[in-house]
């Protein structure tokens, strides 16, 4: 029972994290190779606050706020650099975050923060909160995708110069995507911190950023359901592979490669062509 709860909580948090990047990269077409930084910001803010006596549920708000605020500034940067340049700029932000945290005594430095208080309503309680957050975020993003904002995002992802000629206020749409996406990551991070109850600079490195991007792409850019599914599966895959411990990363790497190589449009693309074949 306890094991399943932990597994499901991991899944729910990862799904939220991946869906938050999906708003930026999937909807709006802005590639981020540094999304783990916002996960990290949320985690650190959340952990510091609950260690200072705040209840977790209240700490989620500032976690989202601080991550979203910094996301806003990164969004401003995205107005200046594009495509691969943007991908590498966001990657740079992630390294700046980790490099900064490493040197801050008050954030635990290299050692990180341990002894993060457990959630008041126990493991099951945390699972419920994580599921609720992920579900709510999924609902919000499904709504967004169907709204005119999603229509605008689609046009920006397609060709932002043309979107402008058609009257779309591209900079502000992009900023919104960054704020929504990074705030979501902030919440996911705060939940993560109280799930594992220890965080350090290495919890939010380049690998984590790449992994979450892989989830979005493997799911199939933009599709909320497929990204959620990919995130759920990929988040626990290494755990399922425990029995072949020595080879688990090898298999993980090959799997990521194989999906891209043989189904470049991800799970969503594969399902679509499967459905077409059935007809």
């Amino acid at each position: 029972m306890a094991y399943e709860v932990i597994l499901l909580t991991t899944m729910a948090i990862t799904v939220l994290f991946a869906l938050s990047l999906n708003v930026i990269t999937g909807f709006c077409g802005q590639v981020s190779l540094g999304h783990a930084a916002f996960y990290g910001i949320g985690a650190y803010v959340g952990a510091m606050l609950t260690k200072g006596g705040w209840p977790l549920l209240m700490a989620l708000l500032p976690a989202a706020g601080v991550a979203g605020l910094i996301g806003f500034f990164v969004g401003l940067m995205s107005l200046r650099v594009r495509h691969d340049f943007l991908a590498i700029t966001t990657m740079g932000i992630a390294f700046l975050f980790v490099g900064f945290v490493r040197k801050q005594e008050w954030l635990g430095g290299e050692i990180g923060i341990s002894g993060i208080p457990a959630f008041g309503f126990g493991r099951i309680g945390l699972l419920v909160v994580a599921l609720a957050c992920a579900g709510l975020f999924a609902a919000v993003t499904i709504y967004l995708k169907r709204s005119w904002m999603g229509f605008g995002f689609d046009s920006i992802a397609d060709d932002e110069d043309t979107a402008r000629i058609l009257g779309i206020d591209v900079p502000r749409f992009k900023l919104w995507a960054f704020v929504i996406g990074t705030a979501g990551a902030g919440v996911a991070g705060a939940l993560y911190a109280h799930h594992v109850r220890y965080i350090g600079p290495d919890s939010f490195g380049f690998v984590e950023s790449v992994t979450v991007l892989a989830m979005v792409i493997i799911g199939g850019i933009g599709s909320v359901w497929a990204v959620a599914l990919a995130a759920a599966v990929l988040s626990v895959l290494p755990l399922w592979f425990q029995f072949i411990d020595d080879y688990k990363l090898l298999i993980y790497g090959l799997l990521v490669f194989a999906v891209m190589r043989f189904s470049p449009n991800g799970i969503a693309g594969a399902l679509q062509s499967f459905r077409r074949r059935l007809r």
């Binding site: 005119w148 904002m149 229509f151 605008g152 779309i168």
Partner: peptide, 12 residues
Amino acid sequence: GSRRMGSPWQAM
């Protein structure tokens, strides 16, 4: 739609 929806709030 863009003259009305060009700004995010209305679009959302």
